[in-house]
Design a protein around this nucleic acid. Sequence first.
DNA 1: GGTTTGACGACCC
DNA 2: AGGGTCGCCAAAC
Length: 121
Amino acid sequence: MLFMIPLNTRPFSMRENFFQDVYEVVRLIPEGRVSTYGAIAKYLGSAKSARMVGWAMNASHHIDDVPAHRVVNRMGILSGAAHFDPQHPMHTLLEKENIRLEGDKIANFKTLFWDPNEELL
DNA sequence: GGTTTGACGACCC
DNA sequence: AGGGTCGCCAAAC
């Protein structure tokens, strides 16, 4: 139950690499909700930038239990859509969770936003 | 081992 | 709303 201990308070010996920390947070995003690169970066400690979260997501393709489609940019825009498997587009995965879209944007982003800095201990 | 590269974000027009 | 700049930092080269 690694997730019971806030990532940013774990002793160094318990920390995996940064990518694993990112994936663990992303796995906690509830179905039908979305989070952002910046919020996750902040939760993991401001030393790590939002760009690094994007980098981690880019490397998560082969990992099946990481709901990468639930991570969008701070405007609620699906900035990573181009990197998804064409057979399972980001838009489709989100709509499957009853998330409404307006083009490349989450329709009611503010209410669907899941912030680990508030939701997690 | 210096440079380039981003699925970013804050800030400024 | 939309564009440009700058800070960010691990990987890839």
